[in-house]
């Protein structure tokens, strides 16, 4: 039992580190983040919080090289995102599309746009009102992993659903 508990704490620590990292990476998006509420004693977030969305449901999906089709894993994550967005109807979201560094700069902008749009269309197909979802591409301008091999590239080929604090009134 003690062993199990320490594993849970480690996961939470990683999740918080990942959150800080992503906030830094998103500074270009012009969106603000709500102040993270403290995790409760069980190490989980308030299910209606953006932190629950990004950490527990998962705010990102990954893509194959030069692709924008959603994998089965991606659809599962997006199903959770759609459910959360419909439950928490006062939030809007900006979907960021990103590419890895293999590719020319402007092509990667177009590719990032495709990826963001693929996520948006899927969320809309699951019932999220289109008017609450904006898309933006960053091409290869905002990598989160900096090495020059596939272990980093796969993390950078992503679409991230960023919950905006500017909730609908």
């Amino acid at each position: 039992m003690m062993k199990f508990r320490s594993v849970v704490l480690l996961v939470v620590a990683l999740a918080v580190a990942g959150c800080a990292n992503r906030n830094a990476a998103n500074t270009g998006a012009g969106t603000d983040f709500a102040v993270p509420p403290p995790a409760n004693a069980a190490g989980s977030f308030d299910p209606s919080s953006p932190q629950y969305f990004s950490q527990t449901i998962g705010d990102r999906v990954l893509f194959e090289v030069d692709q924008f089709t959603l994998t089965g894993t991606a659809r599962q994550v997006l199903d959770g995102q759609a459910q959360w967005l419909m439950t928490n109807g006062n939030y809007t979201a900006v979907i960021e599309g990103h590419a890895d560094e293999q590719g020319t700069r402007e092509y990667n902008l177009a590719l990032g746009s495709r990826r963001a749009n693929a996520v948006r269309e899927y969320l809309v197909s699951q019932g999220v009102p289109a008017g609450r979802l904006q898309t933006v591409t960053f091409g290869k301008e905002r990598p989160i992993a900096v090495c020059s091999d596939e272990s980093c590239y796969r993390q950078n080929r992503r679409a991230v659903t960023v919950i905006a604090s500017g909730a609908l009134s």
């Binding site: 924008f68 902008l109 177009a110 746009s113 495709r114 963001a116 749009n117 269309e121």
Partner: peptide
Amino acid sequence: YSISTGGNT
């Protein structure tokens, strides 16, 4: 220039 809308550029 390019315009990207609905994923198409």
